[in-house]
Structures are given as C-alpha cells and as structure tokens.
Simulated assay, not measured.
Amino acid sequence: MSTHQFARRDDRFLRRYEYDDSWVVAGDLGVADDAVSVDVVGTTAIVVIDDGERVSETEFELPGPDAEVSINNGVLTVTVRK
C-alpha cells in the first residue's frame, strides 16, 4: 500500500491509498452527509458542499473510471478498482 496526501485551499485534506486491486481517496469534509453531493464524470470527481452558509466546489482527478462513492459521518470515500 502507498499513501499520498494533498490539501485544497480550504485546508480540507484528502488522502489517496493505493492497494493491489484498487485506489481509495478519502477525506474528512467536516460537514453533515446531506450537505455533500458528488458527481463522477469520467475520471473527475466533482464535490459540492452546501452547509447552508456557503457553497464550495472542488474537483480532483481519479486514477481511473468506474468509481464507487460513499459518505459516512462527513467522511468522503471514493474507491476505484484497477
């Protein structure tokens, strides 16, 4: 397994884990699950957060297509099979 970490301007950290059969991108967004929407277009993930006070949008490239997305307790997890 290898790990990469990167941050956006809003100080939200994302980590990318590489396993033998998949890549996993995970980040604690710090907001309620219903404040987050995620769209995957090709190999781009588009994350929109609307916490009632402001709306922010972040895009990041995924290492491949066919991503599975889940949000649980404000933690975004995107899994891409190799």
Rank of each mutant, 00 (worst) to 15 (best):
H4K: 06
N72A: 10
G27Q: 08
K82Y: 06
D21K: 09
V48N: 02
D51V: 04
R12I: 12
Q5F: 14
T3K: 15
S37C: 14
S2F: 13
S2N: 13
D20G: 09
R15Y: 10
V40Y: 06
R15V: 13
E68P: 01
D20T: 11
A7G: 08
D34Q: 14
M1H: 13
V25G: 01
Y19M: 03
F6E: 06
D28T: 04
S37P: 11
T43R: 14
V25F: 03
P65L: 01
R15K: 12
E57D: 05
R9H: 11
R15G: 15
P63H: 09
N73V: 08
Y17W: 09
V78Y: 05
L76S: 05
R16Y: 11
Q5H: 11
S22N: 10
T58L: 15
T77F: 07
F13M: 15
R12V: 14
E53I: 14
V80C: 08
V47I: 03
W23K: 00
V47T: 01
D21G: 05
D39W: 04
E57L: 05
R8V: 15
D10I: 04
S56H: 10
V40C: 05
D28F: 04
G27Y: 09
L14V: 02
D10P: 03
S2V: 15
G42Y: 06
L76T: 05
V55W: 01
E59N: 15
E53N: 13
N73G: 10
Y19H: 03
V41L: 08
E61D: 10
D39G: 05
K82T: 05
Q5D: 12
D34T: 09
V25K: 00
G52E: 04
V31K: 02
V25Q: 01
E61Y: 08
T3Q: 14
K82W: 03
R12Y: 08
D20I: 09
I49C: 00
D11Y: 09
V41I: 08
D33P: 06
V38R: 11
T43W: 04
A7D: 09
Y19D: 04
R9W: 10
S2W: 10
G27I: 12
A45I: 11
Q5I: 14
D51I: 04
G74T: 05
G27N: 09
F6C: 02
K82F: 06
V41N: 09
R81P: 04
V47P: 00
V41M: 06
V78T: 07
F13V: 12
E68H: 07
A67P: 11
K82A: 05
S22E: 10
D10T: 06
D66P: 00
D51H: 04
V25N: 01
S22K: 15
N72K: 13
S2Q: 15
T43V: 12
T44Q: 12
V36A: 03
R9L: 13
S56R: 14
V38G: 07
G74E: 03
V41E: 08
S56K: 08
S56Q: 15
I71W: 00
G52F: 06
S70Y: 07
G27T: 13
G64R: 12
G52Q: 03
D50R: 02
V25W: 00
D10C: 08
